[in-house]
Design a protein around this nucleic acid. Sequence first.
RNA 1: GGGCGUUUAACUCAGCGGAAGAGUGCCACCUUCACACGGUGGAAGUCGAAGGUUCAAUCCCUUCAACGCCCACCA
Length: 909
Amino acid sequence: MSELPKTYEPQLIEPRWYAEWMARGYFHADASAPKAPFAIVIPPPNVTGSLHMGHALGTTIEDIFTRWKRMAAYNAMWLPGTDHAGIATQMVVERELRETEGKSRHDLGREEFIKRIWAWRERTGDRILSQLKTMGHSLDWERLKFTMEPAYSAAVIEAFVRLYEEGLIYRARRLINWCVSCRTALSDLEVDYDEGVQGELYEFAYPLADGSGEVVVATTRPETMLGDTAVAVHPDDPRHRSKIGKIIKHPITGREFPIIADPVLVDPKFGTGAVKVTPAHDPNDFECGVRHGLPMISILDEMGVVNAEGGPFAGLDRWKARKAVKARLHELGLERGSKAHVHAVGHCQRCETVVEPMLSTQWFVKMEPLAQPAIEAVEQGKTRFVPESWSKTYFHWMRNIRDWCISRQLWWGHRIPVWYCARCREMTVARTTPTQCQHCGSGELTQDEDVLDTWFSSWLWPFATLGWPNETRELKTFYPTTVLDTGYDIIFFWVARMMMAGLHFMKKVPFRTVYLHTMVTDDKGEKMSKVKGNTIDPVDVIAKHGADPLRFALAWLTTHAAQGKNIKFSMGNVEDARRFANKIWNATRFALLNLEGFDADRFADRTADGPDRAEFDLPERWILSRVQRASEEIDKALEEYRISDAAQAVYHFIWDEICDWYIELAKAALLRADGNAEITANPEARWRIQGALVTALETAMRLLHPFMPFLSEEIWQQLPKPSGAPQSIMITLYPVRDVRFYDDASEASMALVQKVIVALRGIRADKNIHSATRVMALLSVNDDYKKTILEGYKTIIAEQGRCREVRVRRSGASLGGEFSLDHVATALAGDVEVMVPLEGLIDSGEEKVKLTRERAKLVSDRDYLARKLANPQFVEKAPAEVLERSRGKLAEVEIALAKIDEAIVRIGA
RNA sequence: GGGCGUUUAACUCAGCGGAAGAGUGCCACCUUCACACGGUGGAAGUCGAAGGUUCAAUCCCUUCAACGCCCACCA
């Protein structure tokens, strides 16, 4: 046996194993393997990205699932890849270009700029992939995909063309969200609303053209009055009814437009009851404009600067124009007031610029027909959300879905496969570049300049990565995928859209289960951000503490995600996990130092059908049974996606049961077996103790492996195993319960023994007895069964409780001469009385106070239970099991009470 | 304006119908031959408030309060 270093050093073990696993091809899943498939696709991180805690959390969860299912003999495949991330990537490369060469993308031109992006990706785009490797993730790298690679692009184009041909993609001039900084259209989802921005509700008067008066309107955006083409009032509003149909003369542009009646747009209770209508710059006004056939005048250009329609204000940006318009209205004497007004303002998700509603010709996907099957699939349980409550969020969005604007005025992305004919003006939509117009045969074709929204490629991810539109073996085996893990922040962006695309193109849901994890924040619940400087970089964490502690810390914290809650993460969590790793390391050191002469084959042989109960001593029977209980509990927790519960169960099994109890019991037993103790030596006991210890540790490592792959592998390799054992823990079987090792009787006996030991230690601590001091212990029990057990394990009790002698008697039986009744410390272990004679250390007054306090508690317990059991309603209606438990408890409490009374009497005073 | 969620030990969180659990922190003791990244023992909670249902409620129902999240075009 090689000797392990004294402390766990992740840096010494982690890098080795990843390379080894890769070399042996353990991460690769063969699509033809005759095993049940288990598939996960990674939520593709942006190529521009660097690993952050959000990635670390999600991918840790995914790797836990994958490693667990792989060990459970599934054909487990976790598909890696990256997303081209249109706007984000283009912005990063543009910034670099500006900083290094002082150029804009326009200086380079489209083709050259795209070349630069590819070069940039070549240079740095793999950073996140190597970071995922340092996490220990068992991704099937042979299947690595990128959303801009040719095969994937072909899938994107295919999807576009099919939807176009089916009438589900159309081009229209509509009011869309426009970012004046990114200079592109955005989908509704890409607009973030700042809730409760303190703004101003500004009122001004529009004079009537005939000079007969004015109408006062209220607005949060005075500058848009330059594009007004109507004023609307409610048809039933007595204040304004008479003005309907009258003409307004615009005080700045001189344009004339009508006062119209619109019960949809106007809420008579709000503002002045009259609404200025700017169809080209407000979604509601746009609808109103459509209803009334109003002219739609865009007053802003793509950079948010007032255009020629703005007359004297042309050339001012929208904020300056607002001030200028207000100043002008003031000069004209038309200002009518101003109120504070709280409202929501939309910002570009990427650059935080205030988004401008703009009239623009864009491409859209008609969503309702796609949403319907996606709603039904979840209703029918074909796809299940975990936690289930997220399905409500999903349904709500799906049932109120609106068309998706998919064209972007960017260069980096999938170019829209549409060509316009210079001669007949018709469109040709094609999978490959057409040579002539479908309609007139002309060769004068120009491709649409725009690219597709990044999410238009992402929504195909679960099947485009598996070869779609070709009918591949991969699709057959791994589609639908088993689980999708992702953060709840992209349910709409990604999950819902994948559901729609999967059902539409594949006719099957893309995944059976959607596991939604929560967001990671700092320990105060603040979102981590570089600006705030509160980020914890997983790369740094790994360098300092290793990937395993990071993974374990994240798993420990991963409880079911509730709305509005998040994971508060701190380095303390990682340090705790590292301490756990160190504990495991040292438990293994202990084992390895004590395995001399151990024959794993022999042990395996002798326990093939469970341990021989006559041959194996209590601690061994107990720990071998506990191994199986832990296996059952952990496997079940994972099956139910209770990741934190699974991690905590592994933790407690290893720390509490293996380390705190079994190793302590084994230490003493090995000493006995070696004949070093004063107790009879039993050399034959050695192999059973060694075997139980190794079994417990070896099983624990397999249970731990999905959480801490490196450490578990390293330890597992060190442990002796029967010949013919696999080469790596990765290809062993995940432990599931083996009931042949279950041993209720041993667990009950051990529980009793443990209680007595804890009571003894309690007395020692209470009386401040030094650990070197051996005491006498007298145990008083009420039944022969317990007496037999405690008699049988006196040695263990003595060793763990540091006693020089342990005596067990039936209650009331003779104490034996050397016990002095005046100087006995008493504690209860359930209904077993534990007494330690302590000449000179007992203050009988103090002792009495302590016992009396305990008695009061017992009396209250007894009364409560007795009252309950005296209640006929309870006896009649409570389930038998509950009744039984209450009766048992009452009996125990009564015995304990009797014992305490005896003790109080004994003390006298 | 709708919808959802949270409120349990000092902190962070599990539990969700049978008289409350974990990790950290705290207190006392221990340099016991795997580990001081440790051991042993302990203190600590009217389970947000008020009603109701039930033999029984932290857990179910109602109302309220505080906090948080999502959706929505109210000028």
